[in-house]
Simulated scan of single mutants.
Amino acid sequence: MQEPLLARLSQFYRRTQAVLVLAILFPTVFTTAVGIVSLALYSEVKDIIFGVLTITFAIGITLGFIIVVLLTKKSQELALKQTLFLANVSHELRSPLTAIKMYAQTMERGRTPENTDLCVQQILSATDRLDRLIQQILEWKRITNKSESIQPRLCNANLPAQDTVDHFLSTHPNADEYLTIDFMVEPPEFELDRDSLERALYNLLDNAFKYTGENRAIGLTTRMVTEATKVDRFFEYRVSDNGQGIPSEHLAHIFDVFYRAEGTLTGASGVGLGLGIARSIVVSHGGSIFVESEVDRGSCFIIRIPLTHTKKNNENGKGTKKST
């Protein structure tokens, strides 16, 4: 259903641009021709002035037309992305709702202990999926409306990562079989929003889960990074996986909202908000986020947060290095 709708919208925008071209091109060409003829055939001052003004007017129309086309193209791209986003949201909402309805009907037809346990488990799983989707949409709304700013507090740099692991283990059964963590021992303390950074890291872990197969291996690492100048220091969070990787032509847009690399990746669920939300959170901390990826080898998403207002760790803030 998505492709025909997007095709119709694209066709509509192309026709609109064609109408604009015809509506402006012919009058502009005619006006320019009149100005050139006036300059070429007449020598009186008023005719020369008329010719110059006519050509200037034509140039102004042309420049205005170019600006309109560029703005229209940008609006077209945004509208297409939003349309795809709405289509994805509709699909993502419909899938768990269908599952809930199906298992509820199964329970209604006949209840046995085994049947009930399975249905309840599947219904809870579907409601968790719905909740994650709704939370993503609400978070993106808060970010775009700037109705919620980060609340930095002096914090052990490993804590957002540990919170992420705890959250991920609670929502992904058997995650301890493929998730490996390697946290910096005695990390620094600096000002960050622990909750929002945990959400960014969770989005990266969840994204890694979606795009890896049965033999998945996902890693979460924290470490200190010092730039070549040895002046700027950053705390780095790395989320790596052994998935299918991201083709190079998609890397420049992978953090754009509503963007999904359709046609090259598996049919993973999602609406194209997770990475955009992660980038917004990281940028609000003054940090940067980027990805290193190789097709059929996997990807590594890297978050770097500049260390400001750092404080030497106390005993309660020491990190540990471990694997789950």
Rank of each mutant, 00 (worst) to 15 (best):
K73D: 07
L53Y: 04
D176G: 09
H253Q: 09
A252M: 02
V291K: 00
I36C: 05
I150Y: 06
L138D: 08
R142Y: 13
I134K: 13
I134T: 11
P188N: 04
L265E: 06
P152Q: 04
G64C: 05
T116H: 00
V271T: 06
T226K: 10
H309A: 12
Y259I: 10
T266M: 05
A161S: 04
T116A: 06
Q105D: 13
Y178C: 05
S90E: 10
A40T: 13
K210R: 05
M184G: 00
K46G: 07
F209N: 09
I123G: 11
A126H: 03
E3S: 10
K141L: 14
K210H: 01
K210S: 00
G263S: 12
T72Q: 07
H172D: 10
V69S: 03
V257R: 07
D128M: 09
V185K: 14
K322E: 09
L22V: 11
Y178W: 15
A217F: 02
P96L: 03
E3Q: 12
S170G: 09
D182P: 08
E44N: 11
L204S: 00
G245N: 08
V45N: 05
L204K: 01
G286D: 07
P27T: 15
H167I: 07
S240F: 07
L63T: 14
R8V: 15
T62W: 09
E214I: 12
T226G: 00
E236L: 04
S280F: 01
I36E: 08
N242L: 01
N174C: 05
A58C: 07
C119F: 00
V34S: 09
F258P: 01
T222P: 02
I48T: 07
A261R: 12
R153G: 11
S95H: 12
K81T: 09
I181C: 09
V89E: 10
K73T: 13
L84Q: 15
D128T: 03
I303T: 11
N145I: 02
T16S: 11
F50C: 04
F85E: 06
R297T: 10
L204M: 09
M1V: 13
Y259Q: 01
N88Y: 12
L63I: 15
L6V: 12
V52H: 00
G219T: 09
K210W: 00
D241Q: 02
A175Y: 05
Q76D: 04
A87R: 11
T28P: 06
L201G: 04
Y237P: 01
L154N: 07
H253S: 15
L192E: 10
F209K: 13
Y259E: 04
A252S: 12
Q244V: 14
R233F: 08
S240E: 10
K73H: 06
A23Q: 01
G35Y: 03
I289C: 00
K318L: 09
R109L: 14
V271S: 05
T31H: 06
V239S: 07
S125P: 03
H167Q: 10
A268L: 03
L159V: 12
L20V: 08
T229E: 15
L205Q: 02
E148R: 15
R111L: 15
L86P: 00
E108P: 01
